[in-house]
Computed example of a mutant assay.
Amino acid sequence: MTLLAVTGLHKSFGGVMAARDVEFTVERGEMLAIIGPNGAGKSTVFNMVGGQLRPDRGQVLLDDQDITHASPQKRFRRGVGRTFQVAQTFLSMSAVENVQMALISCHRQSNGLWTPARERHREKAVALLSQVGMVEAADIPCSALAYGDVKRVELAIALAGEPKLLLMDEPTAGMAPRERAELMDLTASITASQGIGVLFTEHDMDVVFGHAARVLVLLRGQIIAAGTPDEIRQDPQVRRAYLGDEHALERPKGLSPA
C-alpha cells in the first residue's frame, strides 16, 4: 500500500526551475533514493516533501492525507521523521538525554515540566538506543562520541516519533565506508521490520545501489529515470547525466552527485 504519493511538484526560484512535474511514490517498508548531479533539484524536492519548502503547485499525500502545505512540525506529528546531513543533537547532553528530549517533544510535554526532564521517558529512550546499537553509550555526552555513533543517536531521535515516513538527507555524509554500510544496514533492518517508508538522498553510490529498492534520478529539476538499482545502472540517459561518462555507474565511488 502506498505511503507517500507525490504528484506534479513544481518549484522555481526567480527564473530558475528547480523542480518540474516531479512525481513518485514510497511504499511501506521501502527505501527510495533520489540521486542526481549538482544542481539537479534533489534538495528542493526533498525539502518540499519535508515541509521546509512549499511547492508552487503539486501535491504531497501521506497515507492519503494532504500534507502539501503542512508545516514541518505538523508533518512530524502526522508521522514524518527526519535526519540531517550534519547530525542534529545537543552535544553537551548524553545520548539518552537527547532521545528523552525527543520523546518529551513527541508527547508535547516541553512546557511546564514539574518533573525533571532526565526522569521522563528514560526507559523508552534506552530501548530506542538499544535498537540502534547505542545502549552502552546511553550516558555518554554526544560531544564525546565518534561521529558515526552520533548519527546512530540521531536515528534513535528520529524513531522516537514513531514515524511512518523517514526522510534521510545524506545519512552517511562524513562517515567512514564501514560506518556507512553499518548505518544503512541498520536502517534497512529497522524500517523493514516496522514498515517505515524511507526517502533518502546520498552522494555515495555504493550506499544507494546497496540499499535502495528503487532509485529516482533527477536532472535539471526533472526525473529522467526511475527503477531498480540494476535498471538505473544500465540506463543510457543516466550514464550521460553523470559527467558524460558512460561507465560512471559501474564505478559508483567516481560519481559526484550533490
Rank of each mutant, 00 (worst) to 15 (best):
M1A: 09
L3T: 06
L3S: 12
L4E: 04
L4S: 00
V6F: 02
G8I: 08
K11G: 06
K11M: 08
S12L: 06
F13S: 05
G15N: 08
V16T: 15
A18S: 05
E23R: 15
F24D: 01
V26P: 00
E27F: 06
G29S: 15
E30Y: 08
A33Y: 01
G36R: 13
P37V: 01
N38T: 04
G39A: 10
T44P: 00
V49R: 10
R57C: 06
I67V: 15
R75W: 12
R78S: 10
G79T: 11
G79C: 12
G81A: 11
A87N: 03
Q88I: 02
S92C: 09
E97S: 01
V99L: 11
L103H: 05
H107T: 06
R108W: 15
N111L: 15
N111D: 09
L113Q: 03
E119W: 03
K124A: 09
V126F: 00
A127G: 04
A127D: 09
S130N: 14
Q131T: 12
V132N: 03
V135Y: 04
V135S: 13
E136F: 04
E136H: 02
A137Y: 02
A138I: 07
I140D: 11
V150I: 11
V150T: 14
V153D: 07
A156P: 09
G161E: 08
G161M: 03
E162Q: 13
L165T: 04
L165Q: 09
M168R: 05
D169M: 08
E170D: 14
L183D: 14
L183G: 07
M184F: 12
M184V: 15
I190T: 11
S193C: 11
I196P: 00
G197Y: 07
F200G: 03
T201W: 04
T201A: 14
E202V: 04
D204L: 08
M205G: 11
M205P: 13
D206I: 14
V208P: 11
L216W: 04
G221K: 04
G227F: 01
T228D: 03
I232M: 03
V238Y: 04
R239M: 14
R240Q: 11
E246D: 15
E246Y: 05
L249E: 12
L249P: 12
G254W: 10
G254V: 12
L255S: 10
L255F: 05
S256V: 10
